[in-house]
């Protein structure tokens, strides 16, 4: 069996502040198999976004951050890589999609310039014509009808949904093995969000890309992910396949979360007890989960 695309073991994160250490992650473990779509779901402040940033190596640069634990990417220990090599992974072997597509694109350059930069990360010698061809093909893949026009536009001239598609095309342009998606589409209208998620889902399936999908929206997670980790206050509290989790949630926190979602079939506004006593109960792993992570 080949190594998983991403394996995080006992990851801890703290920030050293004037007032002392603030613990953000208390040792989380998770893995993403090849071609697997794994969701990390939690509320704001649970530590889900910082996890993605650590994988990309973006938090390590902050002087107050204290990080421990191991990060393994396709069998390579990321912490043993030279900073240059690690930096090179970003945008080539692993890439990221952010929440707000319009502000993630630079407003002063046309889309093509930014696209070419992305392509040049994997192939610095890429020529103008080749880059253009590849960009057009990538945009066509995300169902953009007039790729030529879009390439010569600026982000602010395009709709949010269009920018999101451009972001997806860019993120997948170098055929990464891991895609980190941080609340993709949250800033978009629901119908557009549904379309882009469908599109992203189809594409990663075609490319065999593994995805770490970070979201607070349980409904979106149910539609997109194969497997789910629920994170609460820097701890993974439950992990299961999507089917298991939604049909048979076990952890008190997961149950509370699920029951708090208003149903489109009606039934009134859920009554959520103020009681959070069981939320810090130990991890519940459903059958089939990896042994190490069950112990973590």
């Amino acid at each position: 069996m080949s190594a998983p695309t991403l394996k995080i073991e006992n990851l801890k994160l703290g920030f050293k502040l004037w007032s002392g250490m603030v613990e953000v992650l208390h040792g989380i473990s998770l893995h993403i198999g090849k071609g697997e779509r794994v969701a990390l779901v939690g509320e704001s402040g649970s530590g889900k976004s910082v996890t993605a940033r650590i994988v990309l190596g973006m938090l390590q640069e902050i002087s107050t951050a204290r990080i421990s634990g191991s990060l393994n990417f396709e069998g390579i220990d990321l912490d043993k890589l030279k900073p240059r090599d690690r930096h090179h992974l970003r945008g080539t072997r692993m890439s990221m999609i952010f929440q707000d597509p319009t502000s993630s694109l630079n407003p002063v350059y046309p889309i093509f310039t930014q696209f070419r930069e992305v392509l040049a990360r994997a192939n610095p010698a890429i020529g103008e014509a080749e880059a253009r061809m590849k960009a057009i093909a990538a945009l066509a893949d995300v169902s953009i009808n007039e790729p030529e026009r879009v390439l010569d536009s600026y982000a602010f001239q395009l709709s949010g949904g269009m920018n999101q598609r451009v972001m997806i095309a860019m993120a997948l342009a170098n055929n990464p093995s891991l895609l980190l998606a941080d609340e993709p589409g949250t800033a978009l209208d629901v119908t557009v969000q549904a379309q882009t998620l469908k599109l992203m889902s189809d594409l990663v399936e075609q490319h065999g890309t593994s995805v770490l999908f970070i979201s607070h929206n349980l409904g979106v997670v149910r539609e997109f992910a194969d497997r789910v980790y629920v994170i609460y206050k820097g701890r993974i509290v439950e992990q299961a396949t999507t089917k298991q989790l939604f049909s048979d949630p076990q952890h008190p926190y997961t149950r509370a979360l699920l029951s708090a979602v208003p149903r489109i079939t009606g039934g009134g506004i859920p009554d959520i007890a103020e009681d959070t006593a069981g939320f810090l109960d130990p991890l519940i792993a459903h059958p089939g989960a990896s042994e190490k992570e069950r112990l973590a």
């Binding site: 629901v190 119908t191 969000q193 549904a194 929206n217 349980l218 409904g219 979106v220 149910r222 539609e223 939604f246 049909s247 699920l258 979602v261 149903r263 489109i264 079939t265």
Partner: peptide, 18 residues
């Protein structure tokens, strides 16, 4: 109809309704 069917849902019952 499109608005309703775009709502991400958390249960099979809701999915059936969509």
């Amino acid at each position: 109809r499109r608005l309703i069917s775009a709502v991400p849902v958390v249960s099979d019952e809701e999915a059936a309704m969509r």
